[in-house]
Amino acid sequence: MSDPIRLTTPFSDADVEKLKIGDRVLISGVIYTARDAAHARLVELIEKGEALPFDPAGQVIYFVGPTPPKPGKVIGSAGPTTSYRMDPYSPTMIEQGLKGMIGKGKRSDEVKAALKEHKAVYFGATGGAGALISLCIKSAQVIAYDDLGPEAIRKLTVEDFPATVVNDCHGGDLYMEGRKQYAAK
């Protein structure tokens, strides 16, 4: 197994272009959290032409709704949620310059087409490894939609967040390729 690729946010087109499906990466820098409810609000703002709580250009969104932090802790458990629920919204976010998404599970053909067209990448993190992943989150701050509780938008600072490239900007799909490789003939 090759060594993981270290990436720092925000991403340029060149950062994204060099990534291929199956690459293991360690992401550091600022990332933003959002689930379905927050995405619905973001896309509504975009449709109305209003400003977003953060500029998505070059940024990475992590699909997560963490558990509450215990006293003295930055965050609770914080593993990925299933990504297809964000499929209706992700192409719009990618058009706004979003360069990366972290989640788990399949994406739609529309999302995969947007990754290709606008040079963006979808990473899979290990679902159910919320305690492990929380250790690489160094700060967390709610920046919008506090009323959504676990679904609020948080600005996270992460160090060496482990993920794997599932859909690259070249049309690759690790879920399809991996399955093909190991399915009994």
């Binding site: 199956g22 399949k106 679902g127 991996g178 399955r179 093909k180 490789q181 190991y182 399915a183």
Partner: peptide, 12 residues
């Protein structure tokens, strides 16, 4: 035998 594997990334 479906080949889905851990986290769906391929495996038995």
């Amino acid at each position: 035998k479906l080949g889905i594997g851990p986290m769906g990334m391929g495996g038995v």
